[in-house]
Computed example of a mutant assay.
Amino acid sequence: MNEAIKTVVMPKWGLSMSSGKITDWLAGVGDEVADGDELADIDTDKIAGTLESADAGILRAIVAKAGEDVPVGATIALIAPAEVAEDEIEQAAEQAREEIESGAVEEVTGPMTGAVEVGGRTISYATLGTGEETVVLVHGYGGDKNSWLFVQEPLSATRTVHALDLPGHGESTKDVGDGSLETLATTVRGFLDALGIERAHLVGHSLGGAVVTAVAATEPARVASLTLVAPAGFGEQVNAEYLRGFAAATSRRELKPHLTQLFADPQQVTRQLADDLMKFKRLDGVDQVLNTLLGTLLDGDRPGIDAVPELTRVRAPLAVVWGRADRVLPPDNAEQLAARTAVSYIDGAGHMVHMEQPNAVVRAVESVAGTPEG
């Protein structure tokens, strides 16, 4: 195939994804597209996401139609400059179509998983990319490394990107000790030590935002940049009812109303998402973990974390992203951060900005981390 023809493939957004459904094409044949332009909306078994172009040129062919389930790694469209002959495009599109229909699609390697011992606990993580610079993604309360599925892949094009499970979460040891911010921050510092990471771009969501802020305050030489996504520890507002309800829920029926508060679009709360979280909540030790962390997150009905003193000691470039429809940590909380940096308020996003509008998070990270060559 002509090297000028660039393929757009079904991405692997997460460890368990084997296929995706194209729900809508946002660009049409003949459209000029740039690197980062939105091409298609894709639905997975977890949540819907938007696929961005990794190349610049003209969208010359759409191989997979809207409404079609396509295996991960399959070519779904072709991008090429105008000078590439139409017969070459047709031949490449025909071949891609045959591969989809026959199932002869080259397997795409997803994140590589691993585990390290930190402070007597096993910390699980997933890694994508092999770039010289390193990004570490830290999730929030009740989350795990897979919550970054739409962010980790695009960042890994030019960097090594680790998403870790904090203690008590995901596949890490179900023990958080005293559950303090310092315990969690010590875990992240220990993770960097265990992997031999001398310097990293840290990205944290919600509770993870407070955690990486604490790390950046105490290890300034090791933090190249800091990106906070709806972080805890700033402002006076917190949805204590959500946090307690999430911790207390014992069935999918009880859990789902609380999960809908995480997203601007309640339809994002799929049965699979709720089932996965209930499986996590039923694991031995998780109930104690969640209730211990409530003691860190809440002081009565008020926030229990104040990360502002730590932020005053942070010297790394800072980016902040907040969903305008956040009902867990309202965007008014960002006022304390606005004095330090411009805050990106994202329409169409609730608390889970990195799942609903992941491209906004990627852009925020790039704004302070730069865009190294691959």
Rank of each mutant, 00 (worst) to 15 (best):
M1A: 10
E3I: 03
K6H: 12
S16V: 13
S16L: 13
M17Y: 03
S19C: 06
K21H: 03
I22M: 10
V29A: 14
E32A: 15
V33Y: 02
V33E: 03
E38F: 07
L39G: 06
L39N: 01
I42A: 02
T50P: 00
L51Y: 06
L51W: 06
G57P: 00
L59E: 03
K65G: 08
E68G: 05
V70N: 03
V72T: 04
G73V: 10
V84R: 15
Q91F: 12
A92E: 06
Q95T: 13
A96D: 02
R97Q: 11
E98Y: 06
I100M: 05
T113H: 07
G114T: 09
G119Q: 12
T122N: 09
I123W: 11
T127A: 13
T130L: 09
E132H: 08
V136G: 04
V138E: 12
G142T: 11
S147N: 15
V151H: 02
S156P: 00
T158Q: 15
T160Y: 01
A163G: 01
A163T: 06
V176A: 11
G177Y: 03
D178Q: 10
D178M: 09
S180L: 04
L184I: 03
F191D: 07
D193A: 09
G196L: 12
E198S: 13
R199K: 14
R199P: 00
T218D: 13
P220R: 04
G233N: 04
E236M: 14
V238Y: 13
V238A: 13
Y242P: 00
S251N: 05
R253T: 05
L255M: 08
K256F: 01
T260K: 13
F263W: 07
A264H: 13
P266C: 09
T270S: 14
R271W: 03
L277W: 05
D284Y: 12
G285E: 01
V289R: 15
L290T: 05
R302I: 01
A307K: 07
A307M: 05
A307T: 00
R315G: 15
P317F: 13
P317E: 11
V321R: 05
V321P: 01
R324T: 11
A325F: 07
D326G: 06
P331L: 15
E335Y: 03
L337D: 00
A342W: 00
V343M: 07
I346D: 00
G348C: 02
A349P: 00
M352T: 08
H354W: 08
H354S: 11
E366D: 10
V368E: 01
A369I: 06
